[in-house]
Design a binder for these strands. Structure first.
Lengths: 235, 235
DNA sequence: TGTACAAGAATTTTCGAAATTTTGCGAGAA
DNA sequence: TTCTCGCAAAATTTCGAAAATTCTTGTACA
């Protein structure tokens, strides 16, 4: 699922996925074929296939005969997603620590360094996370699990993190980052990981995941019912 | 993902998925559009969308410009799949036992009864599992996890079990069932579940899952490299 | 004998319009 | 005013063929 963009639908899949994860398309927003085929410049058939695949990834919802929309968010979904992430990522992290070699630990250190040396907020709009930081953050969380020899587990964790990305985008807007020292959290996790302390590492990772979720829930920014606003995407 | 077969591609998706899980389409078998559009009677666009969704479910593989084929099987994949199932299903089962109510326990008892009172082998070809038994077996494993209040976890377990179905089909052919008392295994699991003994239930479930896998691996029926035979499906 | 190249065949990918379904709006009746 | 019915508009779904790519086969050459 990496550079398999040799086909048009593959390109649209990646573009659409990126636009959703980056928040350029909002949760609950309708995705009409006319708009998308103009936006990406391909026929509806190509768009349809990309959307179908994203449905299977839980990033897009589809009601028969009523079209597609970006997956909507809700308090309940976030709670379930957070719980699943804490438990399955912890499980996978234990494997990673037990099975990872020196090259893997080295990659963890490198990813941490890059993350902590990347500007967190966008230089143009300081209320938004910078693209570089989001990418480095995503890479860090992927790397600490990459020691796990079971690709099935790491794949599941990747999918769960993608779903969580729909929510994390919003946490920056509500000033959540002011209440915590995110670099310190990542550093502590990386230290526990490289030290081989699985108990500590899984506890820290779970707290890290839960904290973002809790702050977002406390903020009341997410309604209890599904969000269905049809905000227009900005170019 | 239930009765959403209001569309043609939805019907093909369900048919194709059923044919793969039932072993009517073999692992590694190529899935050319010409053949499929004739088999199911729809245009290639519809077939393509159904195949795309199955790719995202890991039941079908796709190489750009080279078409689709049923997911191939290998010893390594089975080992990883089994490990993931044992750990994630155990985790979910603990939730199920902790969160399930009386109605859920009642459903577990009902599913066990139905499973143990359904003929295991096909009456026409005793070397094959009967369709009814496979369905009851699938339902039983789904129900014991259904007490879990987190749909994200149960969904993941469902996907993993679907992948495992690709392998389980074969275990009946190698006489695996002679070496074990499958009804007793299921009964023991159900008893532990209804008794609320999470430690025992998860241990029994993991053993149950691992046993099928181990017997299949010991049989040598699955080659170490990916199977790529192009066996023709039988009507 | 083996390798490289090229034309033809087979298959996948893509498109744009037709068919089907849903949605929106307004007239008419209660 | 409110509700229902029905037609028109908009959107989704489907089709079948054209375009693009890969695979196969056969031939020439070393």
């Amino acid at each position: 699922m990496t550079q398999l963009a040799k086909t048009r639908h593959g390109q649209v899949y990646l573009s659409l996925r990126a636009d959703i994860l980056a928040g350029r398309l909002h949760p609950g927003e309708k995705l009409p074929f006319a708009t998308l085929s103009e936006r990406y410049g391909f026929s509806v058939g190509v768009i349809r296939e990309a959307l179908s695949r994203l449905v299977e990834q839980s990033l897009v919802e589809n009601l028969p005969q009523q079209g597609f929309r970006v997956a909507s968010v809700s308090r309940e979904t976030l709670i379930h997603l957070t719980q699943a992430r804490c438990e399955i990522e912890s499980l996978t992290l234990r494997h990673s620590i037990a099975e990872g070699d020196v090259n893997w630990k080295s990659a963890v250190v490198a990813a941490l360094f890059k993350l902590n040396n990347t500007q967190q907020m966008d230089s143009e709009d300081p209320s938004l996370l910078s693209e570089d930081w989001v990418e480095a953050h995503s890479a860090f969380h992927a790397v600490i699990l990459a020691g796990c020899a079971n690709p099935r587990l790491t794949d599941i964790c990747g999918q769960l993190r993608d779903s969580a990305e729909l929510y994390r985008r919003w946490s920056a807007r509500i000033g959540e980052q002011a209440k915590r020292d995110i670099p310190a959290e990542h550093t502590a996790i990386a230290n526990a990981v490289t030290a081989g302390d699985a108990d500590l590492a899984t506890r820290l990772l779970s707290e890290h995941i839960s904290l973002t979720s809790d702050l977002l829930l406390e903020s009341g920014f997410i309604g209890s019912t599904d969000e269905r606003e049809n905000a227009q995407a900005t170019a």
